[in-house]
Design a protein around this nucleic acid. Structure first.
Length: 463
RNA sequence: GGCCCCGUCGUCUAGCGGUCAGGAUCCAUGGUUUUCAUCCAUGUUACAGGAGUUCGAUUCUCCUCGGGGUCACCA
């Protein structure tokens, strides 16, 4: 069974890059009927917060990415880590190092001065003397001094690291006893049964260290997939300073979960020429072996396109629900079908759609000056009057087509072009020169409101 | 700087020795529309550079250049 995981450290909101690796992990597990589990890496007490952890969960909930089983919190697993550290100590695969921070810093400086790689010199690796109890120590793992560590990566292929180039006896437990990242990650992944690790390729250089831990503890090494970074427009790793990287900000901006997920799945992954993927299609087609090797630049042009695509292709009832967080309650509106049909093609975001709805529903409080000047010419008032009169004389007006017929009648009878009626009518109804089809607008607001707006405009423009 | 990864239109990408180098987005133009948007059509733009291997390289190899990541008692 495929078990994947997402393991954020709760130091802030969930960002777009993390979400993408989470999505990949989720898809791959679910596609294989496996499990997608969540682990909160909250060992850094100074930087972590419960709010941040909650924010991450909230984003997952919004997008419908469900994890399996209980959430694992690293902060609650001290006993487990201690046990394995003990084990390594007992087996002489790790040892206590009494080198002081000062001495270590001094060592580094000399190495830097000599242009050598900075690394621990193994001073206590084979030390077997006695130590005063009150001396502080860290625990270091015995890393191989030579040979190759091969990371078998499903995205990048086999990657060779020379032990002498990259390894030293790295710390697995600090002076206060707290275990370090590379140790706990390996222990947790192994204990949680994670056999396919999909994560950002900024972790690639950590992987050899984790492999050392796996090997020391006799755990099976999982399959790794290191997915390339998402870069900002400067070509640098996407960070929290790069504007809208908070996943929940996309909700506020009016993006639909489907669009955001579709956008992210295509960032660094592809399936031939296909651009549109429903969740079901992603589940069917996703495979981490098809992930790109190179980083991609994050740019929202395509997201906008996808978002409008999804808005166009979402059913009205679903759309009405999606619109609710933006302050629009349409469930009781009797013309909501016409309204949504009319606006679907026009809005790029849900937020924009909410604005467009209000522009129709609310009686214009003022008229755009330029538009009015252009629309109201000689005879415009007369035309509007004629149109208003016809409207008021009809009893049964419901559909856009009903209003359209009346518009046709007026232009035919008065022998004028459509624009002569359309332009002033548009300003009367909407207060500006652009917008949805007038017949639809009138059908949505109804006969009385239409007449009111026409009357208002006539008053305003005959002064 | 050491180590590692990467390099096809502006952007997201297809390509897996022989293609007019394809799609999408963006942009531009035209059509549809009373307007705007949608929609439709058309168009501009790419294999980082240099050596090899080969009958033939975007594709394989090497070098150069460029970009990125990472080097903690952070995660």
């Amino acid at each position: 069974m495929v078990v994947t995981r997402f393991a954020p450290s709760p130091t802030g909101y969930l960002h777009i890059g993390g979400l993408r690796t989470a999505l990949f992990s989720y898809l791959w597990a679910k596609k294989n009927g496996g499990k997608f589990v969540l682990r909160i890496e909250d060992t850094d007490k100074a930087r972590n917060s419960q709010e941040a952890a909650d924010a991450i969960l909230e984003a997952f909930a919004w997008l419908g990415l469900e994890h399996d089983g209980e959430i694992t919190y690293q902060s609650q697993r001290d006993d487990i880590y201690k046990k394995y550290i003990e084990q390594l100590l007992n087996e002489s695969k790790a040892y206590k190092c009494y080198m002081s921070k000062e001495e270590l810093a001094e060592l580094r400086e000399t190495q830097m001065a000599n242009k050598e790689r900075t690394k621990y010199n193994g001073k206590y690796r084979d030390f077997d003397g006695n130590h005063p109890e009150d001396l502080e120590y860290v625990i270091r793992i015995k890393a191989p001094l030579s040979g190759d560590i091969v990371v078998k990566d499903g995205v990048k292929g086999d990657i060779n690291f020379k032990a002498e180039d990259i390894l030293d006896d790295f710390v697995i437990a600090r002076a206060d006893g707290a275990p370090t990242y590379n140790f706990v990650v390996a222990v947790d992944d192994a204990l949680m049964g994670i056999n396919e690790v999909i994560r950002g390729d900024d972790h690639l250089s950590n992987t050899p260290k984790q492999i050392i831990v796996y090997e020391a503890l006799g755990f099976e090494i999982p399959k790794f997939y290191h997915v390339p970074m998402i870069h900002n427009s400067e070509g640098k790793k996407l960070s929290k300073r790069d504007g809208a990287t908070d996943v929940m900000a996309y909700k506020e901006m009016g993006y639909t979960p489907a669009a955001l997920l579709n956008f992210l799945v295509r960032l660094g992954w592809s399936y031939g020429d296909q651009e549109i993927f429903s969740i079901d299609e992603m589940l069917e087609l996703f495979n981490p072996k098809d992930i790109n090797k190179s980083a991609s630049i994050y740019n929202t042009e395509k997201l906008n396109w996808l978002n409008s695509h999804y808005i166009k292709n979402t059913s009205n009832s679903e759309l009405a629900q999606l619109l609710e967080p933006y302050g629009l309650v349409l469930t009781s509106h009797d013309k909501k079908e016409i309204l949504l049909d009319e606006l679907k093609d026009r809005a790029k975001t849900l937020k924009e759609m909410a604005v467009l709805v209000n522009e129709i529903i609310e009686t214009p409080a003022s008229y755009d000056e330029k538009a009015a000047k252009k629309a109201f010419k000689e005879g415009s008032i007369e035309i509007l009057n004629a149109f208003g009169a016809k409207i008021s004389s009809h009893e049964e007006l419901h559909l856009p087509i009903d209003y359209h017929h009346i518009m046709e009648e007026v232009v035919n009878e008065m022998e004028i072009g459509f624009g002569k009626l359309g332009q002033p009518l548009r300003v009367a109804l909407l207060g500006k020169m652009t917008g949805p089809g007038l017949d639809s607008v009138m059908a949505i607001i109804g006969k009385d409101e239409t007449m009111l707006r026409i009357a208002n405009a006539i008053t305003a423009h005959t002064l």
